[in-house]
Design a protein around this nucleic acid. Sequence first.
DNA 1: ACCCGACAGGTTGTTTTACCAAGTTTGAGC
DNA 2: GCTCAAACTTGGTAAAACAACCTGTCGGGT
Lengths: 243, 243
Amino acid sequence: MSLESVPPKYAQLVQALQRRIEAGTYPPGSLLPSEHQLIKEFSVSRPTVVAALRVLREQGWIDSQQGKGRFVRGRPAMASMESNRPGQAYLTDPETDTPGELVEAGAVTPSNRVASLLEMPPKGRAFLRRRLVAGDGEPTELVSLWLPLELSEGTDLTSGEPLREGVREHLTSRKGVRFDHIVEQITARMPTAQEAKQLGMPKNVPLLAVFGAVRDASGHPLAVVEVLLPADRHELEDAYPIA
Amino acid sequence: MSLESVPPKYAQLVQALQRRIEAGTYPPGSLLPSEHQLIKEFSVSRPTVVAALRVLREQGWIDSQQGKGRFVRGRPAMASMESNRPGQAYLTDPETDTPGELVEAGAVTPSNRVASLLEMPPKGRAFLRRRLVAGDGEPTELVSLWLPLELSEGTDLTSGEPLREGVREHLTSRKGVRFDHIVEQITARMPTAQEAKQLGMPKNVPLLAVFGAVRDASGHPLAVVEVLLPADRHELEDAYPIA
DNA sequence: ACCCGACAGGTTGTTTTACCAAGTTTGAGC
DNA sequence: GCTCAAACTTGGTAAAACAACCTGTCGGGT
């Protein structure tokens, strides 16, 4: 009983072509062999070849143009670029992984913006956990997490101790909620006196404020994360393909 | 000579099934009709049905399980949220589509940041095209495009006239370059006196500055787009799934 | 000599028919 | 009640045909 099952033919073809592109046999910009040539070389049928080429196109390795052929684009550039979304790290990594200091944990009346992102009434109350994250011994980020009160009950978020697991993992196991996607808003503003003091930054330097509204698959808001970054020391970087 | 070409059958099937899922005919969690049932109902062949269902699965509408069937997951949460990347619109849409005013077009010595993103020597020269984009009769964005000099030669970008096609299309047809992806940096700073004047904004409001380095498939830089937004009037919004 | 259209041959895109393999459920027969 | 075969499901492969599109070549005309 051989446990290793052979992959489908079209998947084997995908791998073979990827290897040739990476090895330079098919350099970027060149024309790939036509379907008919691939059929002959690999002794497979046309649907198999087309299935393999469709995968390669959807993954960004090649481009196809009706009437002309298929062009090599090279290894998809986005493969190794992991999105470095601020706030996402806070949701997945334990607080004990990054040095920092808990500055607030308790029920508050959130700002209108946060209340709106949580889809709660303007003067209602929510749970806030705020943490000053340090890097190289200096404070660098002020991270705030707002939750509906009922989501915070029975969790370790209300304690003053650093979390030993990520917020996402904690809420999933304790409350059974499923994070699905984040709606992110980025804006800039001048810091308040308190924020400037906490972050150890000049008062005339703007702040980058990133709001992340965490939602479940149906779009219902679960939490809001705000990350405040002094603009003179940090910036956001991201990479994405052009359609 | 009917200009409206009919979409392929499998695409029609995709739309029909999407409408039924949205209408609740196929509620989330339920079992979709089997391939055979869909073949009979829509009078198409099995590969056509399979192609449509493959698209739906890749887009996250349904789940499939060999031997059991296909389950409805519901409208994918990210479907309607199109990434609203600033700068991307400038690259794809004709300048004549948006009201605005060309404020600069010529060779300059770019800032260190732009030179670095273009991977050119610090004191070299590049072509700059800068446009003040208006909305509701007020200036709202200052969009700048830097190109290596050799990429600007022989294009309509050097003229003072508004472009009648997108920058990407223009450069692709004239110079044969292929845009592949963008590396984006977001930062905030105070406006210069000239920027504040051009944008009609107070001098004490910060600017959101978005740098987009356009690259080809091999990572070679092709152009840099900078979008300046007054932070009191605009912010960036985006949505993305959590892995 | 030059230009332009028709045409042939190549390419990918879409659809159909057919068959086999593999996983799941059901029910008939023991 | 248990076993196992039949009937369902989706996954994969093969062979064929037509359509749409691009690019040359070969004309004929100017």
